[in-house]
Design a protein around this nucleic acid. Structure first.
Lengths: 225, 225
DNA sequence: AATCACCAAGTCATCTGATGACTTGGTGAT
DNA sequence: ATCACCAAGTCATCAGATGACTTGGTGATT
């Protein structure tokens, strides 16, 4: 229930300045009018301008140099994709995570070494099956295994994104569902490791998708009801 | 040349508050101390606190409700994946983008409609082949086609992340290479559309990977030398 | 007893004015 | 030609004040 008209002055200022940047009113490297001028142009106080500028700095559009001015750094949007991901639905988030997961498994298969495989099997044994007890600890062990699979891809980008999405998905599930998605069993987990060990990227990809398929259909059933 | 000590008060405040959030000092949905209290805790003025809070709001961590307080929305770290992606190598960036591309093609195949397919073919015709002339315009047309493919997945998360990676990759290429990666021809592009039209997710996935394979090996050759 | 209108306290939103710190460009002496 | 110095411009930060909005309680009404 997010009413779009419900906007505060500073956010309006952010949008106004962002639009001018995207419109190339000031080219890359150029200097913006000073805070007092922006304040007059937007009819808001200087404090509000500062809040808006700081947001745009944090998003990579601008750079401020004390004593000199505020400069356009880039017209490309950097941090919005992930903040948009937050507002997206659980289905979309899962699909994105699956994309990262499958690709990571492919790379892991191509780059697998006996040591890494042994490490994965160790984590899997440690994880065990959930048989009552500390649920949080079990989830942590499960996550550790999955993170190790991604890390086996040797790709830092995938690793970082996966961390982001796993936290995000966990939070979304807690906020919307009552936490009752099926947890794949030991065999499904082991199948992923086996596929990676085989060195066949297609097999590893397929194993991950088979792993996630029941979770996704359970999610669809939940979202239907 | 970014010296780490060169930091202003507001950024320091952002980091301090972010750390407390990640440390779970306040759980999700909980209310932060009010602005005056934060100001006292951090020994900065209230204006500085407001700037810091607004940055965290724009990054999705917090939510402010006028008259009520400031609340924790999520603890998922958005800044880390982005900075990691920035620092990563071109190979890693391409692999991440390939993951998104392949998954988007899968979804597009599952959800394809005649209208969407017709739209894709239209964009492809419009794109044409590069035969001299305005290179930037050609790149824009090419990008429009690829974005439409991703958009056909109907997944906003994939769309947003794809935009992020395509700008990131462009920037990295301009900064490191002299821009000479091969551009797949018309037939390779059309193959993706055909596969999506067929409605077969595996075929669509494979088509994208075949599309990207020559680019990746060219990249490897360049990085070797 | 339940419901509703109203009120007061708490909190964020915004404005205003002032001072400090830093960059830049020019000035003048060497 | 070079260097030290200075002044203007600009962002960084602070402090105080007022307005707008949410929340929870109070009391009258039904």
């Amino acid at each position: 229930m997010r009413s779009l008209s419900k906007t505060n002055l500073a956010d309006t200022a952010v949008e106004a300045i962002r639009n001018e940047i995207l419109r190339q009113r000031w080219g890359i490297g150029e200097r913006l009018p000073n805070e007092a001028a922006l304040s007059a142009m937007l009819s808001v106080s200087r404090g509000t301008v500062r809040e808006a500028v700081r947001v745009l700095v944090s998003q990579g559009y601008l750079e401020t140099r004390q004593g000199s001015g505020t400069y356009v750094l880039s017209t490309a949007d950097t941090s919005r994709p992930l903040t948009m991901a937050r507002r997206a639905g659980l289905r979309d988030q899962f699909e994105a995570r699956l994309a990262l997961d499958a690709q990571a498994a492919r790379l892991a298969a191509m780059r697998q070494t006996p040591a890494v495989i042994a490490g994965l099997r160790g984590l899997l044994t440690e994880r065990g099956n959930y048989e009552g007890g500390d649920k949080a600890a079990f989830i942590a062990r499960d996550l550790a295994f999955h993170q190790a699979v991604i890390a086996a891809s040797g790709n830092g980008v995938l690793t970082g994104m996966f961390d982001f999405f796993s936290t995000l998905i966990t939070e979304t599930i807690e906020a919307t569902l009552g936490e009752d998605l099926p947890e794949p069993d030991m065999a499904a987990h082991a199948a992923i490791v086996d596929a990676i060990e085989s060195g066949d990227p297609d097999a590893a990809d397929a194993a991950v998708r088979r792993f996630m398929a029941p979770v996704l259909s359970a999610l669809d059933r939940l979202l239907m009801s």
